[in-house]
Amino acid sequence: MWRYFAKRLGIALLVVITVSVISFGLLRLSGDMAQSLAGEGATAEQVTAIRQLYGLDRPLVVQYFDWAFDAVRGDLGQSLVSNQPVFELIVSRMQVTIVLAVLSLAAAIAVAVPLGVFAAVYRNSWIDRASLGMAVFGSAVPNFWFALVLIYVFGVQLRWLPISGSQSWENFVLPTITLSTMVMPQIMRLTRGGMIEALDAEYVRMAWAKGLSPTVVFFKHALPNAILPVVTLSAVSLGFLLGGSVIVESVFSLNGIGSLAYESIRRADFPVVQSILFVLSFVYVLLTLVSDLINARIDPRIRLN
């Protein structure tokens, strides 16, 4: 197993490096950074001076390694707009997004996994059809629009919940609902599919033939086998939610990493954009490794081979 993980770790590291090269490339695609640093009305001499000052006249490869070594030490450069260190900027904005993403994932799992199990156990029943219908709707609804509808209904008409800001837990209810609908349908479908497969498996027929009660058959024998891909999907979803919260954060005026990315993209603050892309992919890769570890806990075939 440790060899397996060493290999996974090696690949993960390679993925992170490749992503960093790509996000670095993205920064260069944006045009002449010295020009945008110098500002609109700068003279050619000023631009050249800035280019030398920031080392932008050196070959790209040298610049990349320069950036990479700094990044490893936690120095992601400075914002072109606010001159703040990018690392601090990201850390200060990360908290809101992490809370939002974790809450949304937890909500999605709490609803989707039991629903998927029920749908599989009572296949083709009304509960199966209802949850599939919800999944179809959930994966079709544009989240920016769903957020507006929630704001209109619960914030404006019913006045139950605040519609923007991040002062109290109440502020997180509507964003969490919006964001969790983005991953709920997938988790539901995967749980249902995995359960159906497990319920049709010979070891589940064997469990019935042993006279075990339905509860034991479903939860001891079927669910652990069905849940493996769901664990992986949940980890991936968390990464997706961290990066996908940009719309929800913008609609609900939350100051998370998504809105930071959005602002930075609009202002062409590419050191910040590049670092956010890099940090998010780093987190994603970490999460997939964690899901591998959890799966190894559940499945001895991974653990012992």
């Binding site: 993209i265 954009v273 892309l277």
Partner: peptide, 22 residues
């Protein structure tokens, strides 16, 4: 497979936003 992994590791919506802005 490696390319697929790299693609999966990149936050799609943010990349799209950045590329469109460029």
């Amino acid at each position: 497979i490696f390319l697929i992994n790299v693609k999966l590791a990149m936050p799609g919506v943010l990349i799209a936003l950045s590329l469109v802005s460029i």
